Amino acid sequence: MKLALVVLNYNDADNTLKILGNVADYSVFDKVIVVDNASNDDSKIRLKSFCEKRDKIFFVENQENKGYGAGNNVGIFVAKKLGMDLALIANPDTDFEERVIKVVKSVMVKNYNISICAPLVETNDVYGSRENVLKGASCWPMRDFMHSLVENGPICRRLFTKALHYDRNFYNAKIRKVGAVLGALLMVRVEDFLRVSGYDENMFLYGEEDLLSKKMADIGKKTVVVTGYKYKHIHSASIKKSLKSLYSRQKIREESTMYFYKNYLKINLLQQIFAKVFFAFVRLEVIIFGLM
């Protein structure tokens, strides 16, 4: 099976060029696709110049920034046109070894019922521990409305960690079926990704991984993690470059989350009102305590 690397850039040429340099000699990738999401700095010039000198790399320039999902959808469409079977979607602020990607690819090749697969994020904490979860979990269970809402509250998340995440014993197995994986780095089966219409482009940022895994589950396909292999992620480094304010990031998170609740979890009017009130308190938490 042929594998492509898809990297989405927005005003982050430094990190994007770094990841391209890191994978330059990785034979595991048949193609590398760089999508610039209408950057308004010098990213397009720098990336286009770099990519034009390398036959393996394809540079795509979006004329409008419609968000994370829309940008990566373009990358997967290009991967399909290039004859790719699998695609590794990787944020510019990730770092991974070739051997890790080879293992993830092997899992996908051997298990046709798996449509999303990822390694774990490297951490000094025990997986499933409260410290690990609060810093940013690698994966989590599929959540209903109330569990998802609680996870979106900075204080609630800290109070009900055990009810929202897998415990440390969960990670003893080599491969684990999960509800969703962190969107920073995940391998997808191109055919299935396109079958479910990829990311919903009405969600600009945040929550896309939950929805994508839900859509895969709806067609009988699994999302899994490979527990013995890890990658590095400078959490939200790319996002923070374009959205420096915690409050602005929280507003976008709310919009995407509410869209997911209304259109996919089909919450009723009373639940919508409850969620809006809940998010009003979350904004206060963000302002007062600086929590996310």
Rank of each mutant, 00 (worst) to 15 (best):
N15M: 14
I175F: 13
I33Q: 02
Y229R: 06
V150M: 15
A4L: 02
L243M: 13
R158A: 08
Y112Q: 15
L159V: 15
V74I: 11
I76A: 12
Y229C: 03
V121F: 09
S197L: 02
F145S: 06
S213L: 03
K53M: 06
Y10D: 09
F281V: 13
S245Q: 09
L134V: 04
K177H: 07
K276T: 14
G228C: 01
A38V: 00
L3D: 08
T161Q: 10
T257Y: 09
V126S: 01
L3A: 10
D55P: 11
V23H: 03
D42R: 08
M108C: 07
I114Y: 15
C117T: 12
K276Q: 12
K44D: 08
A4N: 05
V286F: 02
L3R: 14
K66S: 09
F170P: 01
L164M: 09
L194R: 02
V188N: 01
V35P: 00
K110M: 12
G75T: 01
D36N: 10
G71M: 07
D14N: 11
D30K: 07
N73S: 06
K53R: 15
L211H: 12
L186H: 14
Y206P: 02
A4R: 08
N22M: 14
A184P: 00
I45H: 02
N72I: 12
S238Y: 06
K174E: 15
G198S: 08
T161Y: 13
A118Q: 10
G83M: 12
Q272R: 13
L82N: 06
A180P: 08
K80Q: 07
G207D: 04
S213D: 09
Y112V: 13
D14H: 12
S39V: 05
G290F: 00
L284N: 02
A180L: 03
A163W: 09
E255A: 07
F274C: 05
V103A: 14
V224M: 11
F96N: 10
V282Q: 00
H233S: 05
G153M: 06
D25Y: 07
G183S: 10
F289D: 00
V28M: 11
V286W: 02
G136C: 04
V23D: 03
N152Y: 07
S245D: 10
K222G: 04
L88T: 00
I288V: 05
F145W: 13
G183T: 09
L3N: 09
G228E: 10
V78F: 01
L17S: 00
L82D: 05
D167W: 13
K222S: 15
M187C: 09
I101Y: 05
K53Q: 13
S248H: 13
V109T: 15
V100K: 12
N111L: 09
V60G: 07
V103P: 02
V196P: 04
V178T: 05
D12P: 03
Y171F: 14
Y259N: 05
K18N: 08
C139V: 05
N9Q: 11
V109R: 11
S129E: 08
K56W: 15
N9S: 15
N37W: 08
Y247C: 06
K66H: 10
S256P: 02
N172I: 13
A87S: 08
N73D: 08
E255L: 11
L20W: 00
L86Q: 05
L164V: 07
G83S: 04
I267H: 02
I57E: 03
P92I: 06
F204Y: 13
P154V: 03
S236D: 11
Y166R: 02
I252L: 10
K174D: 15
S248Q: 14
M84G: 07
